[in-house]
Simulated assay, not measured.
Amino acid sequence: MSTIEEQETRSCVSCGLNIAGTNAAAFKCPDCGQQIYRCAKCRKQSNLYECPDCGFTGP
């Protein structure tokens, strides 16, 4: 997948919002290392997230 395609498919793991071009956080799952993206709103509200690969949940 190209970088442009990857940016277009990024979505918040908590709410599903397309986060391309927004102030979103990108980090690796503490358990398995899968890349996770969260939008600014979900980060600010401390919404729970779940890793799509291993099921790890965090605030």
Rank of each mutant, 00 (worst) to 15 (best):
T9C: 12
F27T: 11
T57I: 15
N18L: 07
N18Q: 08
C39A: 03
T9Q: 10
A40K: 10
C54P: 08
Y37T: 01
C12G: 03
R38K: 13
Y49T: 07
C32S: 03
G55N: 07
T57R: 15
G58S: 14
L48H: 15
T3C: 14
R43N: 10
Q35C: 08
D31L: 14
A20F: 07
I4F: 00
D31K: 14
F56D: 15
P52M: 13
G33W: 00
C51E: 07
E50L: 13
Q35N: 08
S14F: 03
S11L: 01
E50T: 15
Q35Y: 05
S46W: 07
A20Q: 08
I36E: 01
E6W: 04
I36S: 00
F56L: 15
V13H: 01
I4A: 09
S11H: 00
S46P: 13
S2G: 12
D31T: 13
R38E: 06
A25V: 12
E8D: 05
A40F: 08
A26H: 06
C42W: 00
Q7N: 03
C12Q: 01
A25T: 13
N47K: 12
A20G: 10
K28Q: 05
I19N: 02
C29E: 05
C39Q: 01
R43M: 10
A20I: 06
C29Q: 05
N23S: 14
Y37S: 02
A25N: 12
E8K: 10
G16W: 03
E5I: 10
P52Y: 07
A26D: 04
A25L: 14
N47E: 10
G55E: 04
V13A: 04
I4M: 09
V13Y: 00
G33S: 09
A20E: 08
A25Y: 03
L48R: 14
G21Y: 03
A24D: 06
Q7I: 05
T3G: 13
R38Y: 03
A26M: 08
G58R: 13
A25K: 09
Y49I: 08
R10L: 11
D53N: 07
I4H: 01
G58D: 14
M1E: 14
E6Y: 02
N47T: 05
A25I: 12
T57G: 15
C39G: 00
C32I: 04
C12E: 02
E50M: 15
E5S: 06
